[in-house]
Design a protein around this nucleic acid. Structure first.
Lengths: 349, 349
DNA sequence: GCCCCCTGTGTAAACGATTACATATTTAGG
DNA sequence: CCTAAATATGTAATCGTTTACACAGGGGGC
């Protein structure tokens, strides 16, 4: 492996000069600069990041701690993070960890010294103890129960979004509105449930716990929850699923049971994943700008790093947007948009 | 930040002894070992990975270079990688890069010194020049055009899988079978197209270039390709989409055009993403073990690292499996499986 | 009783970069 | 023409580890 010394020797200068050229620090004559650039390029010299981080105590790497999650949400949020990180010259060290206290703690320890800051997604409500994280480095909580004063956090407007969607359903005349809840101890799930209840109350509808069914964010759980709802004596006329995957599972169950959507039962989801509009019928949902969520989290983290973790903590929420399609309203078909330009490579498999 | 010296001082021993205890190297008395463990724990000491990698020239980190990809494939493959990496004490440094030569090259340079090896996904056919990667570290090509002799590579049995699916369609009596192709210069796409043509030839069906439509792996492109196919004078009776997303888009288009699936037109996809079975009708597809794909890639890479890149190169393919559902065959409904255990947290949002 | 080896520990030299400080050369101002 | 400042470069300390080598003490084997 070629080191800075090799370059210095080859260029007949000292290591200091090489370092100065490569970092743009200190004054160097144009000619020397040109020479060193040429030599370094020719020898394919790349600085050893370990050595560099040893002396500068910077790694230019951000840690990302994810729960054991599935689906499109994951890839989208990482895309957003990577974009912003790269634009600022940072790398992403990604790791999955069990959502509980212990898992997060060991994961953070393992990252210590490798990263300048960490984005933690820990949707588990139990992880209260995130508070005393063993970290002197900046941390941003993403989609986790916020701790406004101690840790930067970024969440989705879950409650508001859910409330708006349920309000949309009541405005259509629905009175018996069921919810398929998200994973049991999940923060987003809890907030969406709260929004649902709030909307019912505002519409003067008494809550009915038979209409609140368990789910875990998977298609399968949405499918079986919908089947259960259909067996009730007093069926709901609308089903709000806490995410799109479950809504899709529910659509499938209704279809197989010969129940018309939206005529007999309206269905709505949350997240507005790309697929939603291709469902039959196209699925009404609460749009979440997932990619920007990741981008903002990294922005927040970079801000903390720039201020050496000695900054006013922020607590941001990204706002959602109601997207009404046929699954909640019998209207003329909304045609999917024309395909994206073929030229712009979309290399998904 | 507490260093090994701090620990040594606090425990009244030399840094060497601390290092020995923490790495399990060299002989240390039981009592000293216990003491040092206790002190290090109490002081929350974590070794500086930069300093360590400086002297050991190991980083215990794997680089992952991804194209600009969307959807579930991405998250699944990373899950597989992270599992295997963590099990072997490695971290994952993830970065997206433009698929072209230049993009990959700069990305690899940026990673050099930070990682012990790299998994490169570069599905772009143009990236022939991957050959002379500027790397002395082990590289594994994932889902890229394989270079059996020079670089380890791991691919999907695209051709075989596509061929089997099309053979399934011909066995049902279909003669006019269309394909919605994948992204233009994509390796997987090209292989799936090859399998399609092979199957047609074996069934004695003459190719019809009107039945080969452009696509780019997105729902939108599948949607519009299907619409075009419906406008043909001599319509196909079956559509094979090079991935599930496009198949879903096609289903949507057929539905809106009032075309019955599978009675009037059969539809099949590729990948067998979880959603496939929840479509209407449930989508026949070619199952790809995505998670294992990532796991195997990391295994391959770790093997290369263990042998200091001085090992016989391998070229593996993960095999696919035909999954036939209602979209290609009018039979009694296949009911989705019961939901996964709720206990097992699935924290997707 | 002597030598050798094993065990347990410490000392100090790497590893590859950055950077404060020193030095040499040039430029500018009076 | 002299001095001060500005420019260009080199020297060497430093970051936090690992590890080769040295050393001290103790226990057998002969």
């Amino acid at each position: 492996m070629v080191t800075i010394k090799d370059v210095a020797r080859e260029a007949n200068v000292s290591v200091a000069t090489v370092s100065r050229v490569l970092n743009g620090s200190g004054p160097v004559s144009d000619e020397t600069r040109r020479l060193i650039r040429e030599v370094a390029g020719r020898m394919r010299y790349v600085p050893h990041s370990g050595a560099r981080s040893l002396i500068t105590s910077k790694t230019e790497t951000l840690g990302v701690l994810l729960p054991d999650l599935y689906g499109e949400f994951f890839s989208e949020v990482i895309r957003g993070m990577d974009d912003t990180a790269q634009r600022n010259g940072f790398h992403l060290l990604i790791s999955r960890a069990y959502a509980d206290r212990h898992g997060i703690e060991t994961a953070i320890r393992a990252m210590r010294g490798r990263v300048d800051g960490v984005v933690v997604m820990s949707p588990d409500l139990d992880a209260e103890s995130l508070l005393n994280l063993p970290s002197t480095i900046p941390v941003v909580l993403l989609c986790s129960v916020p701790r406004g004063n101690e840790i930067d956090s970024l969440t989705i407007q879950n409650c508001r979004g859910a409330k708006e969607m349920v309000a949309h359903l009541t405005s259509l005349g629905h009175r018996r509105i069921a919810i398929i809840k998200g994973a049991p101890r999940n923060y987003d799930a809890a907030e969406r449930l709260r929004g649902y209840r709030l909307a019912l109350r505002e519409a003067g509808i008494l809550p009915d716990h038979l209409l609140e069914r368990a789910g875990n964010f998977t298609e399968a759980s949405g499918y079986s929850a919908a089947l259960e709802l259909l067996e009730l004596d007093d069926r709901p006329t609308a089903i709000f699923a806490a995410n799109d995957s479950m809504a899709i599972g529910a659509l499938s169950a209704l279809r197989e049971s010969g129940v018309g959507v939206p005529e007999q039962v309206a269905v709505a989801g949350f997240d507005d994943i790309p697929l939603a509009r291709y469902m039959d019928p196209p699925l009404s949902s609460v749009h979440v700008p997932i990619c920007e969520l990741g981008a903002s989290a990294v922005d927040l983290l970079l801000h903390g790093i720039a201020h050496k973790n000695d900054h006013a903590r922020r607590r941001e929420r990204v706002s959602t947007e109601l997207v009404i399609r046929r699954s909640t309203r019998a209207e003329p078909a909304e045609r999917p948009p024309p395909p994206a330009t073929l030229g712009k490579a979309m290399a998904s498999i």
